[in-house]
Simulated assay, not measured.
Amino acid sequence: MNLEIPDGLGDMLRDFTVAVLRERPQNLFDFAVDYFTRVREAKKKKSVPMYVIVDDDDDACEPDPVAFRPKTSKSNRFARRQSVSAERYDPEADEDEESPVVHPKTDRQRERLTEAVAGILIFRSLEPEQMQEVIDAMFEHSVKAGDDVIRQGDDGDNFYVIESGLYDVCVKNESANDGSQKKVHQFDGKGSFGELALLYNMPRSASVRAVTDGTLWAMDRKSFRCIVLKSACRKRRMYEKLLECVPMLKSLDSYERMGLADALTSKTFEDNQCIIKEADDADGMYFLEKGKVRVTITKDGQEMEVRDCLGEGSYFGEMALVNNQPRSASVYADGTVKVAFLERNCFERLLGPCLDIMKRNIKSYTTSS
C-alpha cells in the first residue's frame, strides 16, 4: 500500500526535534502537547495586529494588569500577557501627524523620569530622539495610599510608569458574585501598566490601587499611540525588509519573521569600535543594517584579519550561540556601523527552524579558515 506523506510533515517533525534537543524536556509527552499547542496558536495569530514590542520571557517582561484574568488552571499565569481580541489601532492607517503634547519639566524631573523609564520593555525599540519625545509627553502624577489609579471596567485614558510606591492589582472575584476583588499582582517601586487598554477599544480589565504614597508618570492615549505605536510599526517594517534579504531566514514564514523583527534592537558603533570580543561569552547575534565590519582572530599573540569586510544584510555572532561556546573571533566596525541586535534568549526561542542552516554555514566557515 502506497502512503502519501502530507506536505509540511518533514519540516514540522524537524522543528519539533530541534526544540526537543535544545530544551531537553523531562517529560516528552507533556512537552509535545505544549509545543504543538503553541505552534497551532501561532498559526492562528498570523494576522494579529499587535504593534507593541513584547518579550514573552517572564523575567524580562513587566506584568501588565490589563492583561490579568481570573485563574483558569492550577498554575499561576497572571504574570504572563494574555491575548486580547478587540478593535485595533492601526498605526499605518493613522495619518494624524500632529506633534505630541509636551509637558514642561525641570532638569531634576527629567532625570527622575529618565531613570524610571530606563527598564520599561515597551520603550525598548525607541530611538534616543523618540525617548526624548516620551519624556516630554509624560506628566507627573502623585498618589496617596488608598487611591485607585485605574478601575476595572473604566475606559483607558493613560499609560503609567511607576517611579515609587507600592500598588496592588486586583480583579473582580467572579465566583463570589458579591462585588469583592482578589489581588493578583503587586508592583513594588517599578514597572508599568495600562498600555493594552490604549491599544484597543476595551475597558480596563483590572484595578490598580496605591498601597502607599507614591509617584507615577503618565502618558495620555493619543501621545502613547503617536510615539510608541507608530515608532514600533515603522521599525517592524524596516526590520522585516532587512530580514527578507538574509538567506538564512528564508525558511521562516512571514509570522515568524515578524516576531523576529519585533525582538531586534538597534545599536550603533563608531569606527574601530569593538562589537564582539574574542573569548567573551555570547550575549546575542547581529544583523548589519548600515556600514561594514571586519573580523579578526588572535594567532600567536597577534590579531589578524581573517575575512573580507561584511556588508549590509550580513549577520554575525551566531556561531557561539549555536555551539554554546565563547566567541571565536572579534568583530570591529569599519566606519560608522548600525546593527540590529538579537538577544540570546530571543535567538533560542525564535530561530529554531534556522539552526540546521546555521550549522551548515558554520562548517563552511571552518573549512574556509
Rank of each mutant, 00 (worst) to 15 (best):
M202S: 09
R112G: 00
R40C: 13
M248D: 07
E303N: 06
F316N: 00
G8Y: 00
D280E: 10
D157N: 11
I162H: 05
L198A: 06
W217K: 09
R237I: 04
G8R: 03
T366A: 14
R360H: 10
N158Q: 09
E127A: 13
S251F: 09
A137D: 01
Y160E: 06
Y255P: 02
S328M: 12
I362C: 05
V208P: 03
G156Q: 02
V331A: 00
I122A: 10
R88Y: 13
R38C: 08
F68P: 04
V331F: 04
R108Y: 11
L350V: 00
S368K: 15
K43Y: 14
C274H: 07
E278P: 06
I275L: 01
E140Y: 04
K222N: 12
Y315E: 02
P6R: 04
N361C: 10
V101L: 12
V20N: 00
V208Y: 07
L243Q: 00
R204I: 02
M138E: 01
D107I: 12
D58I: 11
S180D: 04
P6S: 08
K45H: 13
C61K: 11
A261L: 03
E343D: 09
R236L: 02
F341L: 06
T114A: 14
G259D: 12
D334Y: 13
R327M: 08
S207C: 02
A261C: 01
T366L: 15
D30A: 15
F269C: 01
A206L: 00
F68D: 11
E278Y: 02
S231I: 01
L321Y: 04
G165T: 00
S254K: 12
N76S: 07
G335T: 08
F347C: 01
S231A: 04
V39Y: 08
D262R: 15
M219P: 07
I227Y: 00
K182T: 11
Y332H: 10
R360G: 07
K46T: 14
A67G: 13
T298K: 13
V339M: 05
G284Y: 03
F78S: 15
K359L: 13
K144T: 15
P326A: 03
E62G: 08
L249Y: 06
K182R: 13
G313E: 03
E278C: 02
K74F: 13
C309Y: 08
P203T: 05
E23S: 14
D178Q: 03
Y255K: 10
P70Y: 01
N173Q: 09
T114I: 06
I276G: 00
D94H: 02
T296K: 08
I135S: 08
N2K: 12
C346G: 05
K190E: 07
Y255I: 09
Y315T: 02
R294G: 07
Q273G: 06
G119K: 15
A32F: 05
N323G: 02
R294Q: 09
C170P: 01
R38E: 11
K241A: 14
D90S: 09
V66F: 15
D334M: 14
G146D: 01
P65Y: 09
L9R: 08
D11W: 08
